[in-house]
Design a protein around this nucleic acid. Structure first.
Lengths: 186, 186
DNA sequence: GTCTATAGAACGATAGAC
DNA sequence: GTCTATCGTTCTATAGAC
């Protein structure tokens, strides 16, 4: 048994069976190991789920890190938008997990998308922003992430289709289209 | 026992205990009735949850119906945005339920926000739209709803604060700000 | 209609052999 | 490390008395 395998299989089970039907029994059946073995590596179901969240956020962060260093900021924001969407389309398991875990008690302390938002913020904003502007960025980021989740939930998970380039552009423009014009810190 | 009471109490329990800890036992304890009694009125937990969804969507629709008939369309869209946000801030139970139920197997057939989106669409668009434009509206509506859920999740449910008028205006402008200018069917 | 009592299954987690 | 076996609990749902 290997921790990363367990995490990946857990994501698979949650996507297939939905959260409320994802038991230790289902997970070990999928992994073809014994319950005792899983509990040797993870002390509880909560710990397993917490590591699944950590893995998911790291995977997204790794994927976005590749476009982090672009110099043209406007281009940067478009690339980040596109990269995030294409990543979540490819990793439906992570997309479904992040959506379905919102509001669950399993991850309580981690407060879910908070860390992901923080990641984004660090990539998008400069260090020396006034708080008023920071608040506006935080609001925009929340709106942006919510839109991405909802649009991909409807299109990728329900209708099984990827977004067109035009649709990604529409999403980009709604949130970051006006920001590029004035170089106001984003 | 009365069906609407059961539905309201169920919303309360889910908000307090989270979805995975909301059992028939917790619901009847809260209602101070017996399990047998609840099952006399609802044939299963799934049926109860389905009725909770129906109730929630109807409550939102009723709330929005009041601004439906405004003649100035641009003003209409702002009022709808504001009304929806203020309603969900007031009814945290419904807000939490809609967020937490996304991707669960309880409501499978109803596909969750689909009905709410349909409601919106009927209120926003004219009858005779070409499909290309209709698709764009559908995308915008998904983005809009996703943003509202995510922003209210972060602010109302986690930070326990209502949005400012400026924030609501920001949300309105991101989605409908440009639409009003050209009278293109919305 | 509403209750009590409980069936029957599934759950998270552990003990102990290997 | 990995297994089998099972503990103790909780769950949905039902039977049957009132």
């Amino acid at each position: 048994m290997n921790r990363e395998d367990a995490i990946k299989m857990t994501l698979e089970v949650i996507k297939e069976k939905k959260l409320e039907n994802s038991s230790i029994g289902e997970i070990v059946k999928k992994m073809d190991i014994s319950p005792g073995n899983l509990y040797y590596h993870f002390k509880s179901k909560n710990e397993l789920y917490r590591e699944v969240l950590e893995y998911s956020i790291n995977e997204i962060a790794d994927s976005l890190d590749k476009v982090k260093l672009d110099i043209n900021k406007k281009n940067n924001l478009f690339q980040l938008t596109e990269k995030l969407i294409r990543f979540l389309e490819k990793r439906e398991d992570i997309l479904f997990f992040l959506i379905t875990m919102k509001g669950s008690s399993y991850l309580e302390k981690k407060s879910n998308s908070r860390d992901l938002l923080l990641n984004f913020k660090n990539m998008l904003v400069n260090q020396d922003l006034n708080t008023e502007h920071e608040k506006r960025i935080a609001l925009k980021l929340n709106m942006f992430l919510g839109s991405v989740y909802e649009v991909l939930y409807e299109n990728k998970l329900l209708k099984k289709r990827n977004l067109t380039s035009a649709e990604i552009n529409e999403i980009y423009l709604s949130f970051w289209g006006n920001e590029g014009k004035e170089d106001n810190g984003i």
